[in-house]
Amino acid sequence: MKLTVDEVKHVAELAKLALTEEEIQQFTEQLSAILDYAEQVQAVDTSAVPPTPYVLPLVNVLDEDRPRPSLPTDVALANAPDREDGYFRVRAVFEE
């Protein structure tokens, strides 16, 4: 499984990661090697095997709908890099 530089750039875009040219080169090689290794799973016949996304026998864990104390606004915002008037401050999503 040989990844191309363009594929690595595409995945970095999907993952919202700014990578340096050096990282792109490095990851192209390293991820190809890891995917080669992971390729072993392809040899297993799984035609009649259901997937296991999680191991617990629990389905639809429900809880009583009751109000509980939550974090005060100032505490919830205390770690925010940028805030204003009790809100997280975010850069414009749409450009003019």
Binding site: Q42, V44, T46, V49, P50, T52
Partner: peptide, 14 residues
């Protein structure tokens, strides 16, 4: 090819 396949093989390991 990867994620679903891995979850199926996970069933076999289990």
């Amino acid at each position: 090819a990867y994620y679903l396949k891995a979850q199926q093989v996970r069933t076999l390991i289990r």
